[in-house]
Design a protein around this nucleic acid. Structure first.
Length: 191
DNA sequence: CCCTGATTCGC
DNA sequence: GCGAATCAGG
């Protein structure tokens, strides 16, 4: 996939807004990896975002030279489809943008005005919470050591409930929410 | 473990 | 120029 002006514009915008490289990559398209995004960011020389001015001069690594490096063989573009072939519980594997629809709604919108429309669209599908069907909702009573205790809704509200999906023993949250709770809560506005 | 950005370097 | 592999850190 080539870096069109359009895509670069989106890249810049999202990067400036503080989105992580992987989020940008996901937003940009299926064939784009976070490495591609980062690489491009560097080439554009806009790598310095909120530089904490830390870290040591980064030691280099010898790195395997040519021949010994297995590296990805032919067909570089074929990696995207076979990504989630593993055996997963499938429950929380890919809530993100998995609906096999055509291009994301955002893409079309971006073509009209890459500056304003982009903001809303990516925010929607990147941050969207999962929805629990009415029947599957559980209250405090139903919580046990195997249910995800991720709260949904306003705790002082009536329709407040818990996620309730299976969670591993010892873990308070289901697979999906464990990640969310731990990681990306304020991913976009770190120090 | 998961993730993040940063860097190198074969292509 | 591109991005996978790797690194270093959280």
């Amino acid at each position: 996939m080539a870096w069109t002006d359009e895509r670069v514009a989106i890249l810049k915008k999202l990067w400036m807004e503080g989105l992580s490289a992987s989020q940008i990559a996901a937003e940009l398209g299926e064939g784009v990896t976070r490495n591609a995004v980062i690489g491009k960011v560097h080439r554009l020389k806009l790598s310095g975002r909120a530089k904490p001015a830390s870290s040591a001069p980064r030691a280099r690594k010898p790195r395997a030279t040519a021949a010994s490096a297995p590296r990805r063989p032919s067909g570089s573009a074929s990696s995207t489809t076979a990504r989630s072939a593993g055996s997963r519980p499938a429950a929380a594997s890919a809530p993100r943008r998995s609906s096999g629809g055509p291009a994301v709604a955002g893409n079309t919108a971006l073509k009209m005005s890459a500056d304003t429309e982009a903001e809303q669209s990516f925010e929607l599908n990147a941050e969207s919470e999962i929805f629990i069907p009415e029947a599957d909702r559980i209250g405090l009573m139903e919580l046990n050591e195997h249910t995800c205790k991720w709260p949904i809704g306003d705790p002082v509200s009536e329709d407040f409930h818990f996620c309730g999906r299976h969670s591993d023993e010892g873990k308070p949250y289901c697979e999906f929410h464990s990640k969310r709770a731990y990681h990306s809560l304020d991913r976009r506005k770190k120090s």
